[in-house]
Design a protein around this nucleic acid. Structure first.
Lengths: 341, 341
DNA sequence: TTGTATGCGTTATCAC
DNA sequence: GTGATAACGCATACAA
């Protein structure tokens, strides 16, 4: 593979016996050009297998046609699906998506800000998901447009695409309560995270609606990871059976899975001995035994819309600012009537 | 946000009272510069919050410091983990990774080739995974370096990072046989895919080693998706029980999961009534009930190594060409002794 | 309609 | 050690 020099516009122009600008005109429809000459150019392009050098284009246009997508963890299928939505929206307008995963070796927001400033990317889609992510984002946003997904920063209004987590929380909780559970417990997410707050708020609304004092329901602090679900369940099982909750509301599927593992390891059955509900509706959740009752978030759509919002911002359009997307309860087998009945 | 023009080297030079070249020298260590002036430059850079325009750099250097990573589907956790490995290796050398997912709307290899030729990316990491992908890749490889992951094209020798699927197949099969199963069946992957061929070849070696004629073992053609596992199991269950296999070797986890669902739907227990083994060891597989016996592929390492190979190629180094990575059997609960015993 | 010339921000060559 | 200056490949204002 002798890797010959790639053809440039100049080569094309020479082959077609026209000037460079003419080539540019046909490439971008940016000027009038006679049909016959246009064809000559097109032929030359095909012949030489020419394609424009995007670095030069970016330099000239001051835009890289590229966005960064920050996700905490690709193996989480929720993030993966958001990523697919982003990718799809981007490739529809010929924009590249560069992947940014937190790199243990450096401060994440610093490297992202550098990326933005270097003009290798025009904007950022930010999925905090897990982890803290405080005002640092706001710094980031000074270097260029940033769109948040499934997250909101109270006070500052950064553009964000979210779904109605509070309502989703209210509805799963209501579903559980409708099975006549009266003693519940919550395994919550990181208290600093917006999603965790919303989901919890939703649960509490449902409790109140069912005549249960929200403050009487114990909340175990988790971190959205499987281990923390296991740990919370362990703690719950350390109590005498008569004081245990009969149903567990977990703020995400991973923790629900951890809790279910713990219950199984201790010889309890789900939902026979204890009901468990999750949140996220990861694809895997429906494959479990029992299949997990959860709340589906439209991950793909959220990613897609976030990308659209970012593009609107980049092109000075007013972003589509319709409300949160719906989150729907998926009723499955992990929630049943309480044992006592 | 009034989005002022970003500072350029020229601005830095003026602030520091030096020439542009001096700034360039300190930025790249590409020339000698007196300590005192170097500091002036550094200060100016900090003051102006300057960072170099990478489009201009790419243009000049004829390299984008960016690679493309083609994956069929991010929600498959194997691919997600490969992607993480690639990302890590890339960010260690300050290379960006752009995500490429097959876009239903156009021929995949065409858009990728365009990407390569446009010099927005310097090379490609290609994960065919599922789907056919024939000689088209080879065309791609003429536009620039391409490294295959978990795939090989017989005949042509494109650089590829694989793991020892044949051995992995042999070893799971041996594990199953060691439980005294004698009537087995295989749910294979797409026959055109290298991995599917290797895994099957491994199974057959084990059969032969156990005194079973490999040709006597029925192979159901799957496509690596869950549904095809379900379908294969359905077909198997249509036979009289005395002719059914007592163990199912599935060429990937997804199909194993599908098969297990089918068995459950028909009231059969795993491994009580039939044993099932997978391949890939997706994170979810250990969370199933029963946990799936599978073969772990070092996905992250494969991605990491593939990226290293690509960088070697890009910089004219001889790529590290150590053999396939090991694939290890993960023994779990979905394989047990046959029912008859 | 078409061509010429200039600039985008960097790097690198060459004089000084 | 340092600083002009010419590319890099493309887009475009302006002249023809």
């Amino acid at each position: 593979m002798v890797s010959r020099r790639r053809p440039t516009m100049k080569d094309v122009a020479e082959h077609a016996n026209v000037s460079i600008s003419t080539v540019s005109y046909v490439l971008n429809d940016s000027g009038p050009v006679a049909a016959e000459r246009r064809n000559r150019v097109l032929d030359a392009i095909r012949l030489l297998d020419y394609s424009p050098n995007e670095s030069a284009r970016s330099l000239k246009r001051r835009s890289a046609s590229t966005v960064a997508m920050v996700v905490p963890d690709l193996t989480n299928q929720f993030f993966a699906m958001v990523a697919e939505g982003v990718h799809r929206a981007a490739s529809a307008v010929d924009v590249l998506v560069v992947l940014v995963l937190p790199d243990a070796t450096e401060l994440p927001e610093e490297s992202q800000a550098k990326l933005l400033r270097s003009q290798r990317v025009d904007g950022v889609i930010y999925l905090s998901g897990t982890g803290s992510m405080p005002a640092a984002i706001y710094d980031l946003a000074r270097s260029g447009p940033v769109v948040l997904v499934d997250e909101q920063i109270p006070g500052r209004d950064l553009p964000a695409v979210v779904c109605d987590s509070r309502r989703g929380g209210r509805e799963v909780a209501a579903h559980v309560l409708a099975q006549d559970h009266r003693r519940l417990a919550v395994v919550g997410g990181p208290p600093a995270l917006w999603t965790a707050q919303q989901r919890l708020a939703g649960y509490r609304e449902a409790f109140a609606g069912a005549g249960i004092d929200p403050d009487s329901v114990p909340v175990f602090a988790g971190d959205y990871r499987q281990e923390s679900g296991y740990a919370a369940a362990t703690e719950i099982l350390s109590r005498p059976e008569s004081e245990r909750p009969t149903a567990l509301l977990c703020a995400n599927d991973l923790m629900a899975i951890g809790a279910m593992q713990c219950l199984r390891d201790n010889g309890l059955s789900v939902p026979g001995d204890m009901s468990v509900a999750g949140f996220d509706d990861q694809p895997i959740s429906s494959m479990l035994t029992p299949a997990l009752t959860s709340v589906r978030q439209p991950a793909y759509d959220m990613g897609h819309r976030a990308a659209r919002v970012l593009f609107d911002l980049l092109e000075g359009r007013e972003p589509d600012t319709t409300g949160p997307l719906p989150a729907e309860v998926r009723i499955r087998d992990s929630v049943g009537p309480p044992k006592e009945l």
